[in-house]
Design a protein around this nucleic acid. Sequence first.
DNA 1: ATGTCTTTGTGAACGCGTGCACAAAGATTG
DNA 2: CAATCTTTGTGCACGCGTTCACAAAGACAT
Lengths: 255, 255
Amino acid sequence: MATGRTHRPATRSRGIPEATVARLPLYLRALTALSERSVPTVSSEELAAAAGVNSAKLRKDFSYLGSYGTRGVGYDVEYLVYQISRELGLTQDWPVVIVGIGNLGAALANYGGFASRGFRVAALIDADPAMAGKPVAGIPVQHSDELESIIQDNGVSIGVIATPAGAAQPVCDRLVAAGVTSILNFAPTVLTVPDGVDVRKVDLSIELQILAFHEQRKAGEEATAQTSAPAPAAARRDSATDQGPDGDVPAVMPA
Amino acid sequence: MATGRTHRPATRSRGIPEATVARLPLYLRALTALSERSVPTVSSEELAAAAGVNSAKLRKDFSYLGSYGTRGVGYDVEYLVYQISRELGLTQDWPVVIVGIGNLGAALANYGGFASRGFRVAALIDADPAMAGKPVAGIPVQHSDELESIIQDNGVSIGVIATPAGAAQPVCDRLVAAGVTSILNFAPTVLTVPDGVDVRKVDLSIELQILAFHEQRKAGEEATAQTSAPAPAAARRDSATDQGPDGDVPAVMPA
DNA sequence: ATGTCTTTGTGAACGCGTGCACAAAGATTG
DNA sequence: CAATCTTTGTGCACGCGTTCACAAAGACAT
């Protein structure tokens, strides 16, 4: 994923491998689609194809949740939807705050699929006083000053950071201090958090750069090197090496 | 991650492990920041801390690129910026098209860090005729009809899909047919592509669900199970299990 | 009830990624 | 030039994740 995973040593909470947890939402999506078509059961083969994974992997993943299949038949779709939802904690309501209502923050706020999975946008928060009160996605934006009280009043434990890079760490610190223990970070920065707080990051720029790497490999398989590398010690600020700044991106997004 | 990674079996292109490739952009960002502060050299320890990784891992990563460090001193910042940029293919210009100019597409188009790393928004494409000609981020939106000609005229090899889920696969097919070989997918769907085409996905909903999983684990460590599981075969469409649809999200975003 | 057929659940092997710990390399000082 | 000190580069071991391949389990037909 995109998305990069975060440094989770080997927490393997209660025996469910992290890699499996990351795939459960994928299965859940495929199962929900089947459920809507009133399909009663699926085989591991069919479901795996729909989720884009190996069938053996899928069976092993499900085996961590328990034995929910019937040999010779497959899995009961409705039952599996329930079990996975429960395992992921989606049977309860998760109030979420979004901090940084720029282009991206607004896009996230408008995201319909948000609410459909147990997530509820409790508040939109921005540092710009001019934004305060302005409704985005039907929810009035509130000023950063109220961050702490919003978190505490609503019992928010999940925060989404969509601020510029420079503001991310301070915002993160305030969120954590106020009681948030899970953070989804869209800002192009490495966040430092105390133990017990989970951080996941979504970084557009990283994804694009990984694509570029493979693209370059695909394209230049024969023409090995065009330009030779410059000397290691000398000042080297020519041509393409000299890209713009990174720490202070103008817009509101991953860099 | 977010991003979730895609099914790349073990391609390990020319000896550089996939995991290392995924970290190179992280190092590059930290190095660029150092470069702006005119820091001449860094130790693996310092750089690793800035990038949020283990120093041994960082050294091993760099060893795949060659021996660019000096023992007793560290790494030459400028030189390393150049080497990583070159390795990632960032010394050349990558024209990119964004398809689906909803909230998210617009956010991506406005993203400044886009251009700073060798990526250039060649065109914005949307299926809505009402959008055609309207400028977003200074670039006029073009209609889907022109997708093929835009790709070919600009030599685009990287496409970003920010459409609703239902439109993603058809758009993907057209992109691939027109010559795109790398796709960054924001739509909540598993895309099917022919061999030789890379797909990476960024899925907000999946990231949130993973956070919810860990959050639930943190919260309910003592209170094991509140509600008992329903019977496997019976109709079960109660309470929280009954979430809304997923395949056809109203907004323009991951689900 | 018996046999056949389908599909699950999992044991075992393998490969990738990570982190430790240390030898080698070079800078630096006397 | 020799000794010391810093920091890289990497051999090695370990653990997680993936995949194969098959035995066990149940459905279904006769």
